[in-house]
Design a protein around this nucleic acid. Structure first.
Lengths: 157, 157
DNA sequence: GCTTGACCTAAAGTTAAGTTTAGCAATTAC
DNA sequence: GTAATTGCTAAACTTAACTTTAGGTCAAGC
């Protein structure tokens, strides 16, 4: 007999280094999909390893799962992705990294301009208002945490 | 009579663009301190404006409040900080930014090497294991979220 | 002098990204 | 064939960084 088709969740966990609970969570979030065997257990396609490794890499950049899901949605639903598929999404990812580096460099340069002047005073300081972000409407709520890492990545500054 | 010494929390909120509740929270977290007037209301020193603006700037980089507190702890407790004080802490901050940019650039270059090869497969891919981070002990829990933004900043890669 | 608005505290709610626990079912190993 | 693994679901818990709510106090204007 051929070995049962697809990896069990434990095997996938071992290959990726992720916790089993994390993999279930990612499936629930729609980052990967799984078939079920006769007994109702998950069986993952080999492609799940790559999807998960991409998730892990993107997370090292502080990209949110929501953003990662958007990136991964570019991959064809169930067809095994080709290198060309990966290339397309990697290029998009790379563009985001570039943007993020640029943002950091710009802010670093602004900081250089400020060091020693002790100017960190509002609202004059250029550092403080790179985006006019905070005072859009008087003390409006910058809704929860959605601001920090993700927006550095997403802002098209 | 001289105006009552120190800013009320509402005034501080207006000057910084922060919500009143956020300022109270920051005080509870030890990022700023406040005196109390006869009626028990907070009165902030002018220096709080700068501390808070620094907090907001650092947060745009995804630095956690805990890390920010560590940075701010370099400031002399109650003495009004001088430009030299700010310069010292800004330089430390700048060093962290530099590190972070370097990490991003290295990962970007790795990604470039991968684009088109579709190699995102574990455990061979260099991209996946920049730090040997995930498989330290077989599928050990990368404890909660403390990994993403903060460790990119802190890791001495 | 009293009403309105700013402040106070304490406690509970929110989001993201998971982990932990509890109580069962399916597989594998001996 | 049965014990030990591994897997399943659902629900509760965790952390960070706040906000919201509830119920009460202080201060300022008229």
């Amino acid at each position: 007999m051929p070995p049962e088709r697809g990896l069990a969740i434990g095997a996938l966990a071992e290959r990726t280094g992720l916790a089993v609970s994390a993999i279930r969570y990612y499936e629930a979030q729609g980052l990967i999909t799984a078939d079920r065997n006769a007994g109702g257990q998950r069986r993952f396609a080999r492609a799940a390893i790559r999807r998960l490794s991409f998730v892990m890499i993107a997370q090292q950049f502080g990209v949110s799962l929501a953003d990662i899901r958007a990136l991964l949605s570019e991959l064809p639903g169930n067809r095994t992705p080709t290198p060309a598929d990966w290339a397309r999404i990697s290029l998009r990812f790379r563009a985001q990294i570039d943007q993020r580096i640029a943002t950091l460099e710009r802010l670093r340069d602004d900081l250089d301009g400020c060091i020693g002047c002790g100017c960190l005073s509002l609202p004059k300081c250029r550092l403080y208002n790179p985006d006019d972000r905070a005072h859009a409407k008087g003390s409006g709520p910058r809704y929860l945490m959605g601001d920090s890492a993700a927006s550095v990545l997403n802002s098209d500054v």
